[in-house]
Structures are given as structure tokens and as C-alpha cells.
């Protein structure tokens, strides 16, 4: 098993990643063709900035009249003071937009990661235990197929199935607008109902990948000495499956979960778009369409920070699961 990195090294690497990220999120949006001020033009209404002087004033207002190095300095300086800038297309503070959108993405990503990890843990063990039998084959083929389906296709299929053909769940949004719920519980139920389809999509997508890994690892430990000993000791089946075999496979699973965080964030972007879920994905998609530099910079950065932070957490969890990696 590969040695785990020391916390100091992990932190330094995260810091370097972060620095590279800051440069990238600044540079990439500016490499796209398109003009961020075009977001102020409105083809539907025919409104556009037609006065060159006003254009200059608006450019100056957003600091876009300055040379790139100065814009970058301003951006980094803003970051240092916690100022993520001002959205051109939404005319709102980026930090406020992130604060409004991020919780929904966390509400989607967090449970999706937990559920998919739990489901793959259990399913992986059961499938490995009964490898070659019908249940294993069905799970293997089904989840491999699921893995090949992009999130947005799966999302659309679920949308058609449960919101259009069998309209039992809301089709979009995170809650019913302006609904006056009698109790906090009813409000929670409303949020829950809106969460079901996006969460199911993301969880299924993530489960497919983790399941294959978990099954593979458990198959590998089935013949191990401690498993034979456990069986010889007459330990109950469930204990041998989920404690002895499962625990051996936990470490690779956790490492994979760390990697999955980035995929979960990426998947959330697509899933949110399909379900008009007001998370970071919706924010980013609109910002890309509008070339809204400040939002692209701020939202990508925050999303990347979330991924880094969860990765650090997973790192810590792995050390807790396997104390050897902490000692080394």
C-alpha cells in the first residue's frame, strides 16, 4: 500500500494547487471569445450600449479598461480581502451569488457522496461475495451500463419518467416559489421533494464507479488468511462480510471517494442544469454563457476549494481508518 503523505506536504501541495488555480480561473475566461460587457446588451429588447463614452465608463466601472497584469493584481488583492468582485451579467456581488447558490450544491453533492459510498460499500461486498451469480451479474452489467450514461442523459430520463410521464415529483427548482408552508417540516418536505430527482441522478452516477472498485477489492481479499480464520472461528456471515472483508476494502474506497469529489462537483453542474436546480452549476453555466469573468473566477475558485477541502477531509479519514499511514 502506498504511503500516505504527511499533513504538511499535503497542505503545501494543496497550496500550490490553489495558486495555480487562482491563475487559471483568471486566465481561462479571458481566453474565451466574447465580450463580458455584451451581457449588458439585450437582443430581445434591442437594448445595447451604443454610446462609446458610456461603454468606457462601464468598462472602467468593472476595471476591464486596465491592462491584464493590473486586472490580475486587483483580482488577487480582492481575494486577499475576501472580495470576489461584482457580477456583470447579474449585477450582484459574486460572494452573495456564491452564498446563494453554494448551499444547494452542497445539499446535492454531500448526500450524493454519502449515499453512493454507502451503497457501493454494501453492494460491492454482496456482489463480490456472490460473484458469478445472477445478482452479481445483474449488478455488474447494470452499473457498468449506468457508468457509461452521462449524468445529463440520466437526469433527462429520470425527469421524463418521474416528472412528465408519472408526475409525482416537481420538475425543477429547489423548492416551490412563494409557497407558504404551515410548518418547518412541510418546508423541509418541499425541499426534499425537489431534491429527490437530482440527488438520485448524481447518486446513481457516482455509485456506478465506486461499486466496481469496491467489488473488485473485496474479491481480492476473499481468499485472504484473516477471512479464512474468521470463517474458521465460526463468525456470523454478516460480520465476516461487512466487518472483515469490508474493512479491508475501505481504504481504496475512501481514496476513490476523494477522487469522486471532483466528479461529483462536475456532475452536479450538469444535473443542476437539467433540473434548473439553483446551485453552483446553474451559476457557472450562465456565467460561461455571459462571459461573466468575476463570477467565473469566484465560482470556480470556491468550487475548487470545496473539492480541495473535501479531499483533505478524506485524507484525514483515511489516516483514521488506517493508522499505519499516519505512523509512516
Amino acid at each position: 500500500m502506498a504511503e500516505r503523505r504527511r499533513p504538511a506536504v499535503s497542505a503545501a501541495l494543496s497550496g500550490l494547487t490553489l495558486a495555480a488555480l487562482v491563475v487559471l480561473v483568471f486566465a481561462l475566461p479571458r481566453a474565451l471569445p466574447g465580450d463580458p460587457l455584451a451581457a449588458l446588451d439585450d437582443p430581445a429588447s434591442g437594448v445595447a450600449i451604443t454610446d462609446p463614452e458610456l461603454r468606457e465608463r462601464v468598462l472602467a466601472h468593472y476595471g476591464l479598461d486596465q491592462p491584464l497584469p493590473e486586472q490580475f493584481a486587483g483580482y488577487v488583492g480582492g481575494l486577499a480581502t475576501g472580495d470576489l468582485g461584482w457580477s456583470i451579467a447579474r449585477n450582484a456581488p459574486v460572494s452573495g451569488l456564491v452564498a446563494a447558490h453554494l448551499p444547494w450544491t452542497l445539499l446535492l453533492m454531500g448526500p450524493a457522496l454519502l449515499l453512493s459510498t454507502a451503497a457501493s460499500y454494501v453492494l460491492g461486498i454482496l456482489a463480490a461475495w456472490h460473484r458469478g451469480r445472477t445478482g452479481d451479474r445483474v449488478a455488474l452489467v447494470g452499473l457498468t451500463a449506468l457508468r457509461a450514461i452521462p449524468e445529463y442523459v440520466l437526469a433527462t430520463l429520470l425527469l421524463i419518467a418521474f416528472a412528465v410521464l408519472l408526475p409525482v415529483l416537481p420538475v425543477g427548482g429547489a423548492r416551490t416559489p412563494f409557497a407558504e408552508h404551515g410548518s418547518g417540516l412541510a418546508a423541509l418536505a418541499d425541499v426534499g421533494a425537489h431534491l429527490v430527482l437530482p440527488l438520485a441522478t448524481l447518486t446513481l452516477s457516482l455509485t456506478a464507479t465506486l461499486f466496481l472498485l469496491q467489488r473488485h477489492t473485496v474479491v481480492g481479499v476473499l481468499g485472504a488468511d484473516h477471512m479464512l480464520l474468521a470463517e474458521a472461528k465460526g463468525l456470523p456471515l454478516r460480520r465476516r462480510q461487512f466487518v472483515h472483508a469490508g474493512r479491508s476494502a475501505l481504504l481504496p474506497l475512501l481514496t476513490a471517494v476523494g477522487l469522486q469529489v471532483a466528479f461529483a462537483a462536475q456532475g452536479a453542474v450538469f444535473v443542476e442544469a437539467v433540473f434548473a436546480y439553483p446551485g453552483m452549476g446553474s451559476l457557472l453555466l450562465e456565467a460561461v454563457a455571459a462571459r461573466d469573468y468575476p463570477v467565473l473566477e469566484g465560482a470556480f475558485l470556491v468550487l475548487a476549494l470545496v473539492v480541495l477541502a473535501v479531499n483533505l477531509l478524506v485524507d484525514l479519514a483515511a489516516r483514521w481508518v488506517d493508522p499505519r499511514s499516519a505512523a509512516s
Binding site: 460587457l37 449588458l40 439585450d42 429588447s45 437594448v47 450600449i49 451604443t50 454610446d51 463614452e53 458610456l54 465608463r57 462601464v58 472602467a60 466601472h61 456583470i88 449585477n91
Partner: peptide
């Protein structure tokens, strides 16, 4: 107010 990029500002300035 003149630096805001909203439609009516442009009309007034123009």
C-alpha cells in the same frame, strides 16, 4: 449613476 450599465442610464446620457 452614470457608470451603471443599465438601459435607462444610457438613454439619459445620450
Amino acid at each position: 449613476g452614470g457608470a451603471a450599465g443599465v438601459p435607462h442610464v444610457g438613454r439619459v446620457l445620450g
